[in-house]
Design a protein around this nucleic acid. Sequence first.
DNA 1: GCGGACTGCTTACCT
DNA 2: ACAGGTAAGCAGTCCGCG
Length: 885
Amino acid sequence: MAITLDKFIIKEDKREEKKDKEELKEYLEEGIEESIYEEEEEPEEVIERTSFEAETPKNTGILYLLSVSYSAIRNKAFLKLYDPEKGKIVFWYDDTGHKPYLFTNQSIEQLSSKVISHPGLEKFEEVEKYDLLYDRKIKVIKVIAKDPLSIGGRRDSLREMIENTWEDNIRYHECYTYDMNLIPGYTYMIKDGKLIRVDQQINYESLKSSFKDLPEERLKYLLEWFPLLSTPVPNYRRIAIDIEVISEYVDRIPDPHTAKNPIVCVSLVSSDGLNKVLMLKRSDVREGIRPPELSENVEIEYFDSEIALIKEVFKYLIEYPIVLTFNGDGFDLHYLWKRAQLLGMRKEDIPIIMGRDIALLPIGIHIDLYKFFHNHAIQVYAFGNAYREVTLDAIASSLLNMKKIQIERSIAELDYLQLASYCYRDALIALKLTSENSNLIMNLITMIMRISRMSMEDVVRQGISKWIKSMLYHEHRVRGYLIPRQSDIEALKGIASTTAIIKGKKYMGAIVIRPESDVYFNVVVLDFASLYPSIISRWNLSYETVRCIHEECKSNVVPDTKHWICKKRIGLMSLIIGMLRDVRVKWFKHKSKDPSISEEERNWYKVVQQALKVFLNASYGVFGSEVFPLYCLPLAESTTAIGRYIIRETINRAREMSLRVIYADTDSLFIYKPTEDQIYQLQEWAESKFGIDLEVDKRYTFVTFSGRKKNYLGVLDNGIVDIKGLVGKKRNTPVFLKQAFSDMTQILKEVKTPEDFKYAKEKIKEIIQNCYNNLKNRKYTLDDLAFKVMLSRPPDKYVKTTPQHVKAARQLQDKGKEVKPGDIISFVKVQGPIGVKPVQLARLDEIDIEKYIGHIQSTFDQVLDALGIEFEEIIGAKKLEFFTN
DNA sequence: GCGGACTGCTTACCT
DNA sequence: ACAGGTAAGCAGTCCGCG
């Protein structure tokens, strides 16, 4: 049945109707209340027990699925869907009687004797599953439970009592998502109380022509995914919240576990024009003068009591479908939750569901941007390392070019308008972070939800390995494949067959060719487009195809290893990763650069392209990580081994063509002065031999190598200075060095011919000499001289050695300042036995000048080496002079 | 008891 | 809590030295 509505096709979801419908359960057994946390390493399943509910309409327009949850009160799964017309959440409760379950290979007799009296047991069912590892159908028993905690999460859960279980550690709301083939972030409707998936009309003919080289099976799979990557994302109605609390200490965040001090200010900024600051009236505070940062449209509302203020905030938490905070899990919502209780509210009347480190909402979705920006994959692949420190200020300045408002005094000492302006800015930044670039972040989150099949609150809190896990689990479930246990894969596939170059690593990685120290004009960089995903796709790599069980495949060996690859089946990982790669490269990346479409449209393609890139970039790495449930060393190892083979063969081929390969790293080759024809020939050769595109990545006017790997500086044909790995560019290098280094790159930027170097060299010598003189004459400030190093753990957790930044951090602690992991410690090198001091405690006259001269040398040597200049030759004479002083 | 050679630890980077 | 490979600087240890 298909009804056409506008440009959408609507069709019935192909979910099977369950025969025996469970009656709605009003009450759960007692005693669960306190044991809602899983003991496992898995993030706890937060079980909702509040009485807040959204509407459950029988008929709706287009809705976007934001989240799949489990209601403990009704003991069933339910969906939170976003209605873009009303800007509200609606609920839809499961109508199939779906129940949590696990699989086991125990017989029903064995099971009966063990668990038949378990109060949470519903029934046993024999089902057929496909065992990918052994390439055969198997019969297993599905043990169905009455509620999620009876499967796992308690000491006496079924999974603790049954041996040989599978799929027993999937959280119930995820299990439900996969089984119902739900796509979070995607479009649905409710019709006569039924949930219906809504697909966008796709022009399949034009698509097929873009992918005409693809084998049938791969193309079919790609077309299934296409609508989900092409459907637009709504402009979500959302509100950002930030709270301020009185605090005794200037440098310490109030503790939400005790929530001793009052909440005095809350700002609310929404996508639909709300700009409000709620302020607690206090007798000793003056109104003050409205600062220019606090624009006239910001409404300030005063409250006589704190609880009245909090209750007003709660109205917005219920009202809005999406609530944004920066560290709301760890602070804002946690504090509100605790504080409301201290002021007499009952837990079940508070519209916040508090887990251990996570704050959820009963109706809407809470996005903690701190957690999202903390995600390494997002930091690196989506934002290209644009922000270094995960603080609101650092992120806002790099992504929005906007700063937090600086306050000199503690919260308690500010007047009303100063406080309002400070608090308002933080909420404004949070909202703007999600609206920038046509709602880039919200679009990205939604695309990641669709690809990973994860709910919004999970996507923003979990990392790339969880996203990929979820995507793959879904693919297993829809195909009827049993999800193997990590131990099943390891037992069958064994361990690695290569030795890593780095001590402590599990297998060998990529090749890096050491460059000769020199300056090279006219260099072209070729690189293999997404090499590892392409290898996984082209070589049919998957955990079941690497070292498969078929005797006849053993001849199909992976170069450099003892592994072989299946010739009989398409590998599941190969299929999925290959599809993501193809659709990204051949469609979205292409479209994001298409000048014939609008910028708005290009931006959309860019987002999809970025989301796919995040998955692809991590798709090989997860298989080499023990934390990944489908961990498979031979798979990761085969990927890098084939990568080494490809780059080695390509270098050899280039040399046969009399090309000079001056440097190579993993998937890239730097070629000296090739002709266009030579480039073309090499590309053709590589593409026909390996089936992987070899693209021109960059063209350098010149590039200087210091002789070190992963360490060079060049000027591109578009005039941009491209610096990799040099000390002068690292974030922990003192500002005075970075500045001098940057001055040097400005000189190099102007170099067009080898002759220009004469002049450039003289200028560079001058820069270095100036830098040296300024240092010697103590012209630099302490901030200029500071090294800024991130603390990765609490200072007392460094037991093997005490690095300098830890020494500095401990000095700060002694002075009563709080330091924690993630903080960046600024310190200078001083004379004396300890050798370092935090900038806050140091004096300019105790700086260890000799140490800093060493740093000038090592920073500039990385470039001087290539130019054939000796550092001593620049400052040699000066150095003597210095000593005689 | 002291200093250079060496290894290991830590951070930040590259692909 | 995606991988391995590399640079740099310092901390700590070992060993030889009549």
